[in-house]
């Protein structure tokens, strides 16, 4: 489970960004950091809810 209180480091963000092929300039790092911390909070909220195994993702694709 995500821990929203765990400090997100610049290094964490740079590693994740590198995996996605993005290079984050220094001047953008504070904004990306703020948004990442916010999203981590929301991820923790949705992870704490028990969801049965047969509850499938709502991707909405209808072939």
């Amino acid at each position: 489970m995500s821990n929203p209180d765990r400090v997100v480091s610049e290094e964490d963000i740079r590693v994740m960004a590198q995996a996605a092929g993005i290079s984050i300039p220094d001047y953008a790092m504070p904004g990306v950091m703020t948004n990442t911390v916010l999203l981590r909070h929301y991820m923790a909220l949705i992870e704490e809810l028990y969801i049965p195994d047969h509850c499938e993702p709502a991707f909405g694709y209808v072939p």
Binding site: S2, I13, M16, A17, A19, A20, I22, I24, A28, G31, V32, T34, N35, T36, L38, L39, M43, I46, E47, L49, I51, C55, E56, P57, A58, F59
Partner: peptide, 29 residues
Amino acid sequence: PATRDRLIAGAILPAAQVIQAHRLRTMFR
């Protein structure tokens, strides 16, 4: 800049949590 930083933060989200959000959507519906 505000849009850019939000989009970058979104682009590097882990897949597992995004899929969890979609499963939660099914339950909420």
